[in-house]
Design a protein around this nucleic acid. Structure first.
Ligand SMILES: Nc1nc2c(ncn2[C@H]2C[C@H](O)[C@@H](COP(=O)(O)OP(=O)(O)OP(=O)(O)O)O2)c(=O)[nH]1
Ligand SMILES: [Mg+2]
Ligand SMILES: [Mg+2]
Length: 486
DNA sequence: GCCGTTTTCGGCCCGACTGTTTTCAGTCG
């Protein structure tokens, strides 16, 4: 439960992000420049999402290539990687109760509340901070603090329960799990005629590998009906909040679902807003501002003529087109250059940027699979495949694959002599040769004989050298001894 | 603190919801 930061020279991206968020919160308490606070937060998000470890980028002198990391933060990180601590950060934190940072992941508590609670309740010990806060709430001490009351005291108690159960957005789910939750909710929403359309948005629509919460938008002329139906979802455990334009619930499984509703004629703007990402939206809105437009989930306003009515967009294509941009595939909307790339050709040429949006790899583009486990009995030590090769070939055919390769694990070394391993692999090679000469072969252009070969702790492969001659190819991978030093 | 072909200075997204406030601050999307 402790969220104390791990600091040191071997800090990873997740831990750096946490550290930068703590600094952002510290600046917020100190009344620092509002945009500096935002800058630290943005740098945190950028490092969290970076595809390389910040420490490796630092090694190559490329830290400032991360958008949002400039000279200042890069120099602090340089100090962090060299010395394991940052003097400037320590100075910022000095005088602030360290326990307050334990509260930042409790839903509804931000920097200001965390600080006030710590100070007024004299909470000193980081290790027991959350428990101390809970005790204080139960004794009615929070309601007495200025700016808090009976209701906020109850809300904090509830939030601590949620936090202790690990039911916070920071504990992310894998994409397929979130997909399942979203699909169930969408079927439920579609049961009432008021729902014109319902879509999973946010990180789900962007197909991010891990998902914090489930975001859903509904197109409707009867928002009140949809929202009331939503909050009565049978699997809902708790209503978090509810208003005229949406609601948030917590499900019995501890997951959060956010709903936003919008009229059909303005649904395009809602799709754009609620798909995100946050920094894609901010970047897009900044670009629009320079052109004299103000963007929101309701549509586009002309800044000069605020009296002019907001313009509706029923679909996303028109919304982006109004900004002279190509429609951007949701998978690319992470503010990593896609906005500049989407600017229509004449503008790109003016700016000397000829490149458009990249063409994404679609499922149909996948032409084969060279890592497949069949149930062919090679007597591996673990995880044999479930289906016969013939069945797998048929499925590959229905997927329009041109080729596949079979890569069962190598025969277990502990159970077999070298000769036994070779004879097992000979049998498999004969089986594949046979398939290649049989009718099934016509389904695919190529069926290859591979093997997933263990790399042993001493670096050797787990099959004899001459067994390699029996294979078309091998996949070598490590299956044990993960705690060896680098 | 970051960033840039209208800027190396002067900007920085925009809105929903809640509680405690008597007009808005804090938190979140
Ligand atoms: N303009 C703007 N849009 C935001 C902001 N925060 C969130 N959004 C929009 C874009 C997000 O993708 C969408 C849903 O917010 P979430 O907090 O659920 O984020 P998202 O789903 O992208 O990631 P997640 O996996 O839930 O952490 O709402 C913001 O500060 N400004
Ligand atoms: Mg989300
Ligand atoms: Mg959300």
């Amino acid at each position: 439960m402790m969220v104390i930061m791990k600091i040191g020279r071997n800090i990873n991206n997740q831990e750096i992000a946490k550290l930068l968020r703590v600094i952002s919160a510290a600046y917020e308490i100190r009344g620092g420049n509002k945009f500096k606070i935002i800058a630290y937060d943005r740098a945190a998000t950028a490092i969290e999402h970076a595809t390389s470890e910040a420490k490796d980028l630092w090694d190559d002198g490329k830290l400032t290539e991360i958008p949002g990391v400039g000279a200042s933060i890069a120099s602090h990180l340089d100090e962090l990687f060299r010395k394991g601590k940052v003097a400037h950060f320590e100075a910022i934190m000095r005088g602030l109760p360290p326990a307050m940072f334990e509260f930042l992941d409790i839903p509804g508590i931000g920097a200001k509340s965390a600080y006030k609670l710590c100070r007024e309740l004299k909470i000193k010990n980081s290790q027991t901070a959350v428990l101390d806060l809970e005790k204080a709430a139960k004794k009615g001490k929070i309601a007495k603090i200025e700016g808090f009351g009976q209701k906020s005291q109850e809300d904090i108690l509830e939030a601590i329960k949620v936090f202790k159960a690990g039911e916070i957005k920071e504990n992310r789910m894998v994409l397929p799990y979130a997909d399942a939750i979203a699909q169930e909710m969408i079927s439920y929403l579609k049961k009432i005629p008021a729902t014109v359309q319902a879509d999973p948005l946010g990180s789900l629509r962007r197909r991010v590998a891990t998902i914090g919460d489930v975001d859903i938008a509904v197109s409707t002329l009867k928002p009140v009906e949809v929202i009331n139906w939503f909050v009565r979802y049978p699997k809902a455990r708790k209503l978090v909040e509810k208003g005229p334009s949406g609601a948030t619930i917590l499900l019995k499984n501890g997951r959060q679902v956010d709903l936003r509703v919008q009229r059909p004629e303005a649904y395009g703007a809602m799709l754009q807003y609620f798909t995100g990402s946050k920094h894609h939206n901010i970047h897009l809105r900044e670009l629009a501002l320079k052109k004299g437009f103000s963007l929101s989930e309701y549509g586009i306003k002309k800044i000069k003529n605020l009296k002019l009515k907001i313009k509706n967009y029923a679909n996303e294509e028109d919304f982006y087109k109004a900004l002279d941009m190509d429609w951007i595939p949701p998978e690319l909307r992470e503010d990593t250059g896609e906005i500049e790339a989407a600017l229509l050709p004449p503008i790109r040429r003016d700016q000397g940027k000829p490149d458009g949006l990249p063409k994404l790899v679609e499922l149909e583009d996948v032409k084969g699979d060279l890592h497949i486990h069949s149930n062919f009995p090679v007597e591996e030590s673990h995880d044999p495949g479930l289906d016969p090769m013939e069945e797998i070939i048929k499925v590959a055919h229905t997927l329009n694959y041109e080729y596949i390769g079979f890569t069962e694990h190598n025969p277990s070394q502990s159970q077999h002599s070298e000769n036994q391993i070779i004879s097992l692999l000979k049998r498999k090679k004969e089986a594949i040769d046979k398939i290649n000469y049989s009718r099934v072969k016509k389904l695919l252009n190529g069926i290859f004989n591979g093997l997933e070969i263990d790399i042993k702790p001493n670096g050797e492969l787990a099959i004899p050298e001459k067994a390699l001659d029996l294979l078309d190819y091998g996949l070598a991978s490590i299956h044990s001894s993960f705690r060896m030093s680098r």
